[in-house]
Amino acid sequence: MSDFYEVGPAEPVVISTRVDKVSPKARREHNVRAAIVIAIAMFCLLPIFVMSMTAFKTRSDAVSAPPKLLFKPTLEGFVFLFTERALVPPARAQELLASDTTDLSLFERVALSSGQEITGPSDYVGRLKNSLIIAGVSTIFSVVLGFFAAYAFSRFDVPGKDDLMFFILSTRMLPAVVVTIPLFLMYRQFGLHDTYQGMILLYTVFNLSLAVWLLKGFIDEIPLEYEEAALVDGYSRIQAIFKIVLPQAMTGIAATVVFSLIFAWNEYAFALMLTSDKARTAPPTIATMLGRGGIEWSAIAAGSLGFLIPVAIVVFLLRDYLLRGVTFGAVRR
């Protein structure tokens, strides 16, 4: 290799695919920038890192101060998360563990080593399923309804358009907690308490204002000429919406899906008040996970880890559209 690599080209080059063509100064700057970004990312990911660690700690390790960085990993947290257990006398537990004859599953062994016996599955999986159904369906409803409402507001002369848009926004102005008690009474009256329908309705209504406003902004950006061209080309308005507007609004739709989903997925206060069992979602379940004689931090951490995964998957699937949304408005048109 020539000394070109060390010295760099006569004129500094800022970006090149060839490492040896980038000037040392630009390379240093690039490294500094990369280091800063990595540091910020590490800082932001720290809670998730701590959470993942806690999920594999024993009860005592989880609450030790200062926090232990090195520990013997255990599946205790996951066992506590997924099962209902009962205490067994220590002698009996030792006996069961020692005898190889009984077919003990991995979970049963872990439970027994902390002196407990598995009596049945916990409701965590069911609650996670509730969360998936309620958040998923309400997101679909709010994005679909929001899209059509936003389209109408964007394209047609709706009488009192500005007032209506403000009214839609105003549904977001009251702090949600204020209306929980009236809502609770109403839901009891109408039989919506602790039902999927009730929770889906609530989250849909709550997200709809956001969806309409967000999507209207995106649809406004799509020039009307595209649809008119499609109308003239022999398509009806509905066909033009699906063939022309929808593909171009995908960035906005992806952003709206993520926002709506995250709200419905994370919502805690309403879920706590308006559900008890059948339709209870994961957030209140995880937060109130009490074991014998205290909070099971490792189980909560394990539960939160599982709770993260569905949203992470959705964001990952929509990443291309979301990234395009970041540069939205910066592209030459």
């Binding site: 000429e225 595209y226 008119e228 061209a229 009806s236 171009q248």
Partner: peptide, 20 residues
């Protein structure tokens, strides 16, 4: 008649090609 039924071709000044 609707635009589709009138069966005319329209060439716009701009923005007429579907970008997707």
């Amino acid at each position: 008649l609707t635009p589709a039924d009138r069966d005319v071709a329209f060439v716009f000044q701009q923005y007429s090609l579907y970008p997707t």
